[in-house]
Structures are given as structure tokens and as C-alpha cells.
Nucleic acid binder design. Structure first.
Length: 875
RNA sequence: GCCAGAGUGGUGGAAUUGGUAGACGCGCUGGAUUCAAAAUCCAGUGGGAGCAAUCCCGUGUGGGUUCGAGUCCCACCUCUGGUACCA
């Protein structure tokens, strides 16, 4: 019989709610240390919570409850990232206002989170779509604007026709939108930009001090993409123009045999001669018509066109041909390069395609077989640089360029300014007014927020062609909203809205002071709570959210609003939870089973074409042979064993509500933590859930009479035995250390070991079990509170102190040594723990089979690892 | 291609600084209980040889360092995530 988890969990959730058990006081006791533990707040989607959410949330909840018991003031809040495309798409499809859907979804999410028993301070909830919240998002934008960090610009943007909006570079992956995977095209548009590039160096440098996963820091470094080199001016033969190029390899200037401009480079029409005009224009047209997707897909072979013009290499005055090619991007560097095929793989490929000369300027190693050589070596064919290695040659060339005014040393970043406007309805309106001459100004700060107008039709409008600018939904807002009179001048409001990232750039600050109507956050409170001590969330935000939030935080730091350089001191990503492992048997068109290796590497399309169907089969029908699974009754047939990402279409989605109903919230929490390391990707297993549920039942039955619910007689006031004390303190030590290191799986295993031991005891002293119930509390808070009450202990677990372990209790009188001969275990021997090195050596040589095994051998050496192992080296 | 991380039983995963590989859970096998089943409890469970004591093999592969390697070094293979002409 299962313990009555439904009743227990409801009871305690209600208790916590009514007593505001986990409320963080407005003015916390300053004598206590603080701990700010933050979850990445969810987007409240219509499908509710999935099992991925409670993974990170349980981890932080364990930490929060543990830290409270440890005597910390804990800030552990939750809120909603509620602006964004899905609510709006849904609204468009159903005609329901996004506000309505959002509210409904938020209520559902809140209810679900409460049903898992998370210890959030619900009085600090934030909602990015709440005007009281986005008032401050708008306020921050005004500060950015005032600092010159927000500007309007005509720039080539990522236009996604399906979504009817532009996207930031970070939101485009392989030429497709990050959300939904729709194609993205380049087109020029006048848009709001945020000058994140002004903070590039600081965003890069300050990564150093952060306790973040190395991979995430590396991703941000790559995204910022700092590279040092030089800019060099090339005069154009017979035309009074110069073209500036950026290169990271100024040392290879002698090997520049041609030059390439991006097709969009402004000097292309100027320098192209009449003979080549037609082919150049044709090439430009060809590149323009491609989407980003096609452009990357077709990037296998290099293409380009000759302009007919020549540039003069400043270092040797040689004339080199100028080409245009789409492998040079207008958006990076100067949009022009000097091509050095000898030392650059792309240039080599292009030179091969168009038969352009190749000069090596770095001596290749004797065993080198490739084409372009990008490694180090002495310079050759390079005049005054000959013999110098790359580093010295670079430095010498840069001073040569600077002395002769041919160019200068220069650092470039891959990071682009952040495209900040979206042509959608469901986002923060910009606090910006435009006059009829095209000048813009900000709304007065005391008139914030600029609320979203009520509208019937909030669909984005498709645009006919690239020359028409899309009309954002707000352009159809009521006149009373659209036009504003200020000092006798009629202004038009900005019709674009902010991207979804805006609200999440600073929400962690609002939790500190969520109701403040005068300031974004009170300075004193900010100083107390910041920075976030632990931030847990998905790795998918490694670049987007985490980079944007760091940027805003630095701007707020410069404004003196926040006191720390960085918002999130420690960051942990929870791993993805996959569906249950599936065993797939493939069958060919005639329905006969075929071996899995013949389908490996084939796409779903190719499988469909061949009529191959994968069917799921039962684990009982297969067996393992070597590295593969095979059919039991046809051992020639290999079967695929894999777990997949949960998805509606695959039908392998696990709903946390079902787990709570069938096994309880404590089981859900415990299972999510017991599955494996928090950061790892791991498959779901229903039998695993049953396993931890069994464990909770075992705890219950250890102490409680099943029929009556009363405490068992063997739970009494007896003295705690030495053995019991040791087992308890082993558990305290392990659980404490593992929580600190966020190794929750092994912490749970330590509690299981304790309970397994406890089942062997005839009596269970209350004193002993009391500490165990506290250990259990962060993991299974409902069960632990209920047991606490049943055992008639004082107040609630949440008000107790975390037990400390005493090393003295862990001591044992006897130790077991492993006796090895030449590294192989031959005997085990028990001795008192205080035996000396000499004594154990002597003892071991006469013990058990050891003398016999050493017969006829010379002992060279005896290695003793105190209290553990003796290794006799003999030949 | 490049960058980062990971490969351990049938399975999810444990193994402080190199020192008993496989903790704990799942599954499986046997037993107890039951009219029977479920649930529960007890025992066993890496592979191979042997009646047994015991021995041999075993942490992706191949080398190396060491008294001793899952752990350190070199080369390679596979998988996962990120990225893609960034000059």
C-alpha cells in the first residue's frame, strides 16, 4: 500500500501558502548571510509544464530549502517571460486576445509549480507583460537611448516572412528562425539597434571571473569573436579611390595576389569597368536573390566575378586584380579582403577556381601535404620580413604600415549590434515619439508606461516585396494611441515593439523589489541581494539571453543602478530529459525485418522512399550481442536502441501532472534528481520513478503503521547506538557535501543506504530519525513535514537547523586492508586502525595465502596506503 | 571542417588527490508470504573456467608512464552540443 501522498501533499502546499512559509522578508536579518538562487523563468506556453521544467527547478528548490536550514536569508523567486510569439500566433489562429491566453497560461503554470511544492516567494512574482513591469523595461530603453546606445539605422536585417518580423543575428540559425525554423531573408530596413558592440571588450573580459560552464563561456567568446590584425589601404589603379581591407595576417601581405570585395560593397559600381559591368551586375543579382539559407547551402564551391579594376599592393607596388565574391561578407571587417591563397584555405579554393596566382609567404613544414598553410613558420618571398616567424612578422608589418601611412593595427569583433525591434503586437511598446521630419524623441519618464493599445486585429501583415516596408500591427492602433501631442507638436508613436529578450534582460533585479513604483530596484536592497549566487537554466540560452542580460546589466552598472559588474555569479545548465529508450526494428517494403545498420545514416525521407518502416518493439524480444542489440529469435537482425527528444509528434512526452497524480510530487522531485547528474542529458524511465516512489514508501513504512497511520512502537526514545550514529553521520556528511556540489543523485543514494540500514534495526530512536527527516526535507518536503508532525517533533522542518556531522562518529575500530601482490588483490585483512606501517607489513607477509604466493619470489618493495592497501612488489 | 563535452554491466548511473571498478536505483533469478496474484520482505546478479577453494578477462580502440590507471600522457574511433566562408 502506498503512503497517502495526495492527502499529504495537498495539506502542506496549503499550509505553506497560508502561512507564507517561504516569504523573503522585505528587510531581512542583516546578521545572516544571503543567498540568491534563481531559475530561468518560463515562457508560459499553452501546453503547460513539461518534465524538463521541474528538473532545474527542483535542483534550485533543494538548494533554497537547504540554505534556509543552514541559516541563510534566501531569495528564491519565480515569474513569467510572457511576451512572445507563441501566444500571439495562437491569438491569431483563434482570435483570442494574447492577454487572455497569457493570463490563462500563467495561472496554469503557477498551479502546476505549486503542485510540485516549490518554495518560491510567490509575493515576488513578476510578469513581463504587466504594465507595472514593462514600465521599467521601457525606462531602461530610455536610458539606453540617452546614452546613445539605442539608435535607428537602415541596415540589412534578417527578415522572416512567415513570422512577419525581423530577427536578431542570434535568432537566426543556419538561415532559419530559431523559433519555428522558418526561412530568413536579408533585406534593408530602418530599425532600432542597441549598441552591444560598445561593450564587446567588457563582455569578453568579465567572463573570466564567472563560475560558469567553460563551454558556455567559450560560446560567448566565439560569438563576440575578437580578432586582432590590421587594416591596410590599397589604391586603385587609374581611379582616385582606396579600398581598406581588414586582415588578421598582415605578415602575409607580400602574398596578396588579388583582392575581393563583398558584392554589396559601395565601391563596386565605382570601380567596375564597362567590359565587366554586365557580369558583375548579374553576379550581384544572383547573390541577392538567395536567402541566407541558400547562400550557406550553396557555399560548397566558391563563385565570384572580376571587376576589371586593379589595386596596388602597398608593400611591393604590384597591381592585383579586384574581384567580387559572396564569400566576403559586407557585415564583417571592411567588407573587403586582400586574398592570400598561400595562407588561407578559402582564398586558395577561390584562386584555384579562377586560376589566380598563389604565392606562399610562410615556409611549409617538410611533411606538409595540404594546400593553404595556416600554421607558423619562417616568412619567405616577403622582402624585409623574410625569416621572421608569424608573430614577429605581424608586428613588424604593422609598424611598417603605420610608419608609411598604409594602414594600422586594428581589432575586430564578430559581434554585431543588437537588432532590437520586431514587427509584432505582443511586446513592449517603445517609449519613442517621431515628429513629421523623422526626428525621434523619448516619452517623458513620468508618463511611463506606454501601454499596449487594445486592438481587434493584431496580425502581422505580409509585405509584397523588398521595397515596401512592413506595417507593424500597432500602425493600425486607434488614432488616440498613435498620435501624441507634446508642447504643441503632434508626434507619432513608434509602431515596432521590443523583442522577447527585453523583459528577461533585467527580471532578476525586479524580484529584489517587485512592487517599487518609484524605482526599478531600491539601491540598498540591490546591494544586499546582488549578485545572483546561483542561476540554473537551459544551455539553449548560452548566447542569446545570457549575453543580452549581461549587456544590460553593464549599462545599468555604468548608470550606478546596480552594484555588480556581472549579474550571475554561478551558472549551471540542467541537461535535457529525453523520452524513454525506444527499440526500433526496421522492416522493408514487403514487411520483412531488416538489420538496423542498413538504415544507419538514412534520413526519414530516404527511408520513406525505400518503404522502410521502423516499428517499436518490446525490450523482452531483444538481447545484446557485442555492441549491438539483436532480435532474440532472429539474431542476424540488429535493432536500434535510442532515446529521443520528447515531442508531441513522437508521442513520447511525459506530463508531470500524471507523475504527481500517480506517484506524488515528492516522487517526481526525487526521480528528476536521482536520474543522473543535473547537467547530463538523460532518458526518462517510468520504472525509475517507481523505484524512488518505493523508497519513499519504505521510509513511511519504516516509521508508520500502514493501517492506522500511527507511529510504530519501535520508534521510541531509546538511546542511539554507536552503529546507528555512524550510519546517520555518514548520511549527514554525504548529503551535505553532495548538495553543496549539486550532486543530488548521490545524495539520494546516501539516504537510501541509510534507510536500508535502518530496516535492520529493532529500534529506531526518535533522536536519530529526527535528523534524517531534516536531511530528506529539501528533496521530499511534503513527506518530510508529515513525518515530522507524526513523530510529534517541535514546529515544522522548515524552521529547523540543518544537522552537522561529527567526524568522531564516523570512526571505526577496525579497518580492512587490501593485500595485493604486484597490483593484484590476493587477500583482505582486518586490523585495528592504529597499526603502524612496519606492523602491517610484517603482519601481511605472514597472513593467509600470502607466504605461499610469495614462495620463490624476491620482495622488491612494499607499498602501504594507510588504512587501505598493501601492495607487495615481487618477482 | 573548427570549438567544447562525453564513451563504465542487460539498464540509469557510482567511484576525494592514481589505491578493493560497478555504490544506489531499475531489470532479471531464486526464496518467503498468499488459495492465487499484486504489493511487500530476504538472498543473488560484469563475463568466462571450475564440484569447490580459486583463477583468468574486463571502464570505446591501440600504445605509454607507474608498484598500481576508469582516473595521467600520446594517437585513433564513436556519440552529443555549439558553430560555419568572421578574412
Amino acid at each position: 500500500m502506498a503512503y497517502p501522498f495526495i492527502k499529504i501533499e495537498k495539506k502542506w502546499q496549503k499550509y505553506w501558502d497560508e502561512n507564507k512559509t517561504f516569504q523573503t522578508p522585505e528587510n531581512p536579518d542583516p546578521s545572516k548571510p544571503k543567498f540568491y538562487v534563481l531559475d530561468m523563468y518560463p515562457y508560459p506556453s499553452g501546453s503547460g509544464l513539461h518534465v524538463g521544467h521541474p528538473e532545474g527547478y527542483t535542483a534550485t528548490d533543494i538548494i533554497a530549502r537547504y540554505k534556509r536550514l543552514k541559516g541563510f536569508n534566501v531569495l528564491h523567486p519565480m515569474g513569467w517571460d510572457a511576451f512572445g510569439l507563441p501566444a500571439e500566433q495562437y491569438a491569431i489562429e483563434t482570435g483570442t486576445h494574447p492577454k487572455v491566453t497569457t493570463e490563462k497560461n500563467i495561472n496554469r503554470f503557477r498551479e502546476q509549480l505549486k503542485s510540485i511544492g516549490f518554495s518560491y516567494d510567490w509575493d515576488r512574482e513578476v510578469d513581463t507583460t504587466d504594465p507595472d513591469y514593462y514600465k521599467w523595461t521601457q525606462w531602461i530603453f530610455i536610458q539606453l537611448y540617452k546614452k546613445g546606445l539605442a539608435y535607428l539605422a537602415d541596415v540589412p536585417v534578417n527578415w522572416c516572412p512567415v513570422l512577419g518580423t525581423v530577427l536578431a543575428n542570434e535568432e537566426v540559425i543556419d538561415g532559419k528562425s530559431e523559433r519555428g525554423g522558418h526561412p530568413v531573408y536579408r533585406r534593408p530596413m530602418r530599425q532600432w539597434m542597441l549598441k552591444i558592440t560598445a561593450y564587446a571588450d567588457r563582455l569578453l573580459e568579465d567572463l573570466e571571473g564567472l563560475d560558469w560552464p567553460e563551454s558556455t563561456k567559450e560560446m560567448q567568446r566565439n560569438w563576440i569573436g575578437k580578432s586582432k590584425g590590421a587594416e591596410v589601404d590599397f589604391h586603385i589603379e587609374n581611379i582616385d579611390e582606396t579600398i581598406r581591407v581588414f586582415t588578421t595576417r598582415p605578415d602575409t601581405l607580400f602574398g596578396a595576389t588579388y583582392m575581393v570585395l563583398a558584392p554589396e560593397h559601395p565601391l563596386v559600381p565605382v570601380i567596375t569597368n564597362t567590359d565587366n559591368k554586365e557580369s558583375v551586375n548579374a553576379y550581384i543579382k544572383q547573390t541577392q536573390s538567395k536567402s541566407d539559407l541558400e547562400r550557406t547551402e550553396l557555399a560548397k564551391t566558391k563563385s565570384g566575378a572580376f571587376t576589371g579594376a586593379f589595386a596596388i599592393n602597398p608593400v611591393n607596388k604590384k597591381a592585383i586584380p579586384i574581384w567580387i565574391a559572396d564569400y566576403v561578407l559586407m557585415s564583417y571587417g571592411t567588407g573587403a579582403i586582400m586574398a592570400v591563397p598561400g595562407q588561407d584555405e578559402r582564398d586558395w579554393e577561390f584562386a584555384e577556381t579562377y586560376n589566380l596566382p598563389i604565392i606562399r609567404t610562410v615556409e611549409v613544414p617538410s611533411n606538409f601535404e595540404g594546400k593553404a598553410y595556416t600554421g607558423d613558420g619562417p616568412a619567405i618571398n616577403s622582402g624585409f620580413l623574410n625569416g621572421l616567424h608569424v608573430k614577429e612578422a605581424k608586428a613588424k608589418m604593422i609598424s611598417f604600415l603605420e610608419e608609411n601611412k598604409f594602414g594600422e593595427g586594428k581589432t575586430n569583433f564578430k559581434l554585431r549590434d543588437w537588432l532590437f525591434s520586431r514587427q509584432r503586437y505582443w511586446g513592449e511598446p517603445f517609449p519613442i515619439l517621431h515628429d513629421k521630419n523623422g526626428n525621434s524623441t523619448t516619452v517623458d519618464e513620468n508618463e511611463l508606461p506606454v501601454t499596449l493599445p487594445e486592438m481587434e486585429d493584431f496580425k502581422p501583415q505580409p509585405v509584397a516585396d523588398d521595397d515596401t516596408n512592413p506595417k507593424p500591427p500597432l500602425s493600425r492602433a486607434p488614432e488616440s494611441w498613435k498620435y501624441v501631442e507634446k508642447d504643441g507638436v503632434i508626434y507619432t508613436r513608434e509602431f515596432n515593439t521590443m523583442p522577447q529578450w527585453a523583459g528577461s534582460c533585467w527580471y532578476y533585479l525586479r524580484y529584489i523589489d517587485p512592487k517599487n513604483s518609484n524605482q526599478l530596484v531600491d539601491g540598498q536592497k540591490e546591494k544586499y541581494w546582488m549578485s545572483v549566487d546561483l542561476y540554473v537554466g537551459g544551455a539553449e540560452h548560452s548566447v542569446l539571453h545570457l549575453l543580452y542580460a549581461r549587456f544590460w546589466h553593464k549599462v545599468l552598472f555604468d548608470l550606478g543602478i546596480v552594484s555588480t559588474k556581472e549579474p550571475f555569479q554561478q551558472l549551471v545548465h540542467q541537461g535535457m530529459i529525453l523520452g524513454e529508450t525506444e527499440y526500433t526494428l526496421y522492416k522493408n517494403a514487403s514487411g520483412e525485418p531488416i538489420s538496423a545498420e542498413s538504415c544507419n545514416g538514412l534520413s526519414q525521407e530516404e527511408l520513406d522512399k525505400k518503404g522502410i518502416v521502423g516499428t517499436q518493439i518490446n525490450e523482452d524480444d531483444i538481447t545484446k550481442s557485442g555492441d549491438y542489440f539483436i532480435l532474440k529469435d532472429n539474431t542476424k537482425i540488429r535493432v536500434d536502441a535510442r532515446s529521443f527528444k520528447m515531442s508531441k509528434s513522437r508521442g513520447n512526452v511525459i506530463n508531470p501532472d500524471d507523475i504527481i497524480t500517480n506517484y506524488g510530487a515528492d516522487s517526481l522531485r526525487l526521480y528528476e534528481m536521482f536520474m543522473g547528474p543535473l547537467e547530463a542529458m538523460k532518458p526518462w524511465s517510468m520504472t525509475g520513478v517507481e523505484g524512488v516512489n518505493r523508497f519513499l514508501n519504505r521510509i513511511w513504512r519504516l516509521l508508520i503503521k500502514e493501517e492506522s497511520g500511527a507511529v510504530l512502537e519501535k520508534v521510541n526514545d531509546d538511546e542511539v547506538s554507536k552503529n546507528q550514529l555512524r550510519e546517520l553521520h555518514k548520511a549527514i556528511k554525504k548529503v551535505t557535501e553532495d548538495i553543496e556540489a549539486m550532486r543530488f543523485n548521490t545524495a539520494i543514494s546516501a539516504m537510501m543506504i541509510f534507510i536500508n540500514e535502518a530496516y535492520k534495526w529493532n529500534t529506531i530512536p526518535k533522536k536519530l530519525i529526527q535528523d534524517f527527516v531534516i536531511l530528506l526535507n529539501p528533496f521530499a518536503p511534503h513527506l518530510s513535514e508529515e513525518l515530522w508532525t507524526k513523530l510529534n517533533f517541535d514546529r515544522t522542518v522548515a524552521e529547523q537547523k540543518w544537522p552537522t556531522f561529527n567526524e568522531a562518529y564516523l570512526q571505526v575500530d577496525e579497518v580492512e586492508w587490501v593485500v595485493q601482490i604486484n597490483g593484484k588483490i590476493r587477500e583482505k585483512i582486518l586490523t585495528s586502525k592504529n597499526i603502524s606501517k612496519e606492523e602491517i607489513e610484517k603482519k601481511v607477509l605472514q597472513f593467509g595465502r600470502i607466504p605461499a604466493l610469495l614462495e620463490g619470489k624476491n620482495i622488491c618493495k612494499i607499498i602501504v596506503v594507510p588504512g587501505k592497501l598493501v601492495n607487495i612488489v615481487a618477482n
